[in-house]
C-alpha cells in the first residue's frame, strides 16, 4: 500500500532526478564552453576536465578582442539588432493596437494572412529578396539586412502584441477618449505605459531573432562592413587553423548579450510569447 507520505517522497525524488538530468543536458554545454574559453590550448586538447592551475588564461579573449575583427562584427550585430527591434516595435505596436481596438472588414483574414507568412519557406523567399535588395541598391548594407530580418520578426510580434492588447482593460482608454485624447496621445500616455511588460517581451524576441540570424545575413551581406557575429562565428569555427580556445571565447561573447537581456524578461517571457494564443 502506497501511503500519501510515500507518494510525496517519490514525487520529490523524481522531481530532483529530472531536474538534475535536465541541468546536465541543457545547462552543461553552456558552462563547458565558458569554462573552456578560459583554458590554454594545451589544457583544452588534454582530454581532461580539470587542469593544473597555470593552465587557465585570459589570452583567448585578449586575442579575439584585439587581433581579430571580432569587435567590428559585434558592433554590426548590435547596430542591426537595435534597428530591427526599433522598427519592429514601431510597426507592430501601431498595427497590433489597430487590430485590437478598431474595426476592419475581414479583420480575421488579415490577422490570419500576416500569421500564415510564418509558414513560407524563408530559403525560397530569399532568392527573390536578394534580387529586390540588390535592385534597391541595399546589397551589403545594414539597411538591407534590417529589411530582410523585419519579415522574420513582424508576424510573430504583431500576433503577440495583439493578444496582449486584447487582454488589457479598455475602460481607461474609453474615458481618455471622452477627455479628448487623440490616438497618439492615447498610445504614448496610456497604452504604452500599461503594456510595457508585453512590449518588452516583443522587443526581446525581435532582438534575439535578429542577433541569432544567420540565413538572411549570409545572403544579403557578406562584406566586412556589415557581416554579423553569427557569420563571424561560422567562419572562425570552420577555418583550417582551428583554435578552440578563441572560438570558445568568441562564442561566449556572442551568447552573453542574449543571456543578459533574457535575465531581464525571463519571468514575463512565456506569458508574452503565448499571449496571442489565448485569444487568437
Amino acid at each position: 500500500m502506497i501511503t500519501k507520505r510515500h507518494r510525496k517522497t517519490i514525487r520529490i525524488t523524481l522531481t530532483y532526478i529530472i531536474c538534475v538530468l535536465a541541468f546536465i543536458f541543457f545547462i552543461m554545454p553552456l558552462l563547458w564552453i565558458t569554462y573552456s574559453s578560459f583554458r590554454s590550448p594545451s589544457a583544452i586538447l588534454s582530454g581532461t576536465i580539470i587542469s593544473p592551475a597555470g593552465q587557465y588564461t585570459l589570452d583567448n579573449y585578449r586575442t579575439i578582442l584585439s587581433v581579430t575583427d571580432f569587435p567590428v562584427y559585434f558592433w554590426n550585430s548590435l547596430r542591426i539588432g537595435f534597428m530591427v527591434t526599433f522598427a519592429a516595435m514601431v510597426l507592430s505596436i501601431i498595427g497590433a493596437y489597430g487590430l485590437s481596438r478598431y474595426s476592419l472588414k475581414g479583420k480575421n483574414a488579415y490577422i490570419m494572412g500576416v500569421f500564415s507568412t510564418q509558414m513560407f519557406p524563408i530559403v525560397l523567399l530569399l532568392i527573390p529578396i536578394y534580387n529586390i535588395i540588390f535592385t534597391m541598391g541595399l546589397f551589403n548594407t545594414a539597411l538591407g539586412v534590417v529589411l530582410g530580418q523585419l519579415m522574420l520578426v513582424l508576424p510573430f510580434a504583431v500576433w503577440m502584441l495583439k493578444g496582449y492588447f486584447d487582454n488589457l482593460p479598455k475602460e481607461i482608454e474609453d474615458s481618455a477618449r471622452i477627455d479628448g485624447c487623440n490616438l497618439f496621445q492615447m498610445l504614448f500616455r496610456i497604452v504604452l505605459p500599461i503594456s510595457a511588460p508585453g512590449i518588452m517581451v516583443a522587443a526581446f524576441y525581435s532582438f534575439v531573432v535578429s542577433w541569432g540570424d544567420y540565413l538572411v545575413v549570409s545572403v544579403i551581406s557578406q562584406s566586412q562592413k556589415t557581416a554579423t557575429l553569427t557569420l563571424a562565428l561560422q567562419r572562425l569555427s570552420s577555418s583550417l587553423l582551428l583554435r578552440w580556445g578563441q572560438v570558445a571565447a568568441a562564442t561566449v561573447l556572442t551568447i552573453v548579450p542574449t543571456i543578459l537581456l533574457f535575465s531581464f524578461v525571463q519571468t514575463r517571457l512565456v506569458e508574452g510569447l503565448t499571449a496571442g494564443s489565448v485569444k487568437a
Binding site: L30, Q234, I255, F262
Partner: peptide
C-alpha cells in the same frame, strides 16, 4: 532553463 532557446543557433 530557457537559456538554450535565446542564444543564436550559430553558437
Amino acid at each position: 532553463i530557457m537559456a538554450s532557446w535565446v542564444i543564436p543557433v550559430a553558437a
